[in-house]
Design a protein around this nucleic acid. Structure first.
Lengths: 147, 147
DNA sequence: GCTACATCCTCTAGTAACTAGAGGTTCAAG
DNA sequence: CTTGAACCTCTAGTTACTAGAGGATGTAGC
């Protein structure tokens, strides 16, 4: 029998986030006490831990929703689960490649700057003229690198 | 003298995005023709190219706004510019570290799955019990890894 | 029993950087 | 002069939360 604050402390998920997960249907609506405050049990705690861990591994909430649904049916094949995990792995690998290219380019740009005036600043020059770049981030789109 | 569509084609920035940049004050309000449609010049094009390239390198719009302001003052020292670029580099490096840890953990989890039923699925087990993880992503918070 | 004060409640709005769509106007080619 | 592409404004949606207002409830000490 846990208050939302206790559950938060035990799982490391913030109180408003727990309420948010409930709101979007990721966590079932819990019991309430006479005063109308939420009370949780061990099952809620496990489910929330699962969600948190999956978030830590970068799974989007929609995938987590699906993973939770699949995990409720223990006799099914886990192919679908595997597919989601592999998709996430591919996504992470994709981001890694882009981020490495970015890193290289940023570093190159910064190293070349001799820190004089804005007029001769290599950073500004490179940002203004893509031709000064190494070619390897030509096709990066913002979606790949945000956050 | 470019229409918004032409400018979009030349810079690779989508039409609604150009309007959005204008709306948030990143691009100055352009001239209009008699019909009320935007017309751009070479300066707009350079500025938009700069923005695009900075976005490709992962700079947030607020930083780009600052970079643009700084680049308008060619005789100033470029220390401030350098600081922004280095901050961005640090950010990218930080994300790289997290993403690598994530990648390792995801891969480990997937490899261990023997693809039987949900009941024995390693993916579900690991997600449900953080103790089954290698320790190296313990303190990742979602902010580090989103997108 | 009473008083603080922490914790809880709901609701709305804000974040980043766009994207999508509705509903209407203007431009350019044939 | 028509037709269809391109343009216009405005609103709302995306992801995964976070912040804050304004008020109710729970709990510890006296």
């Amino acid at each position: 029998m846990l208050s939302i604050g206790k559950l938060s402390g035990l799982t490391g998920v913030k109180v408003p986030t727990i309420r948010y997960y409930e709101q979007i249907g990721l966590l079932p609506k819990p019991e309430r006490n006479e005063g109308g405050q939420r009370i949780y049990n061990h099952t809620s705690r496990e489910r929330l831990n699962f969600i948190r861990h999956a978030r830590e591994l970068g799974f989007p909430l929609d995938d987590i929703r699906e993973l939770l649904a699949l995990s409720d049916d223990p006799d099914q094949s886990c192919d679908a689960i595997d597919a989601i995990a592999k998709r996430q792995l591919a996504e992470v690998e994709h981001r890694l490649v882009r981020l490495k290219a970015l890193h290289k380019e940023l570093e190159r740009m910064i190293v070349q700057c001799t820190c004089g005036t804005v007029q001769t600043c290599r950073v500004i020059q490179v940002l203004g003229d893509h031709g000064l770049c190494a070619a390897d981030h030509q096709k990066i789109v913002s979606h790949d690198i945000d956050q």
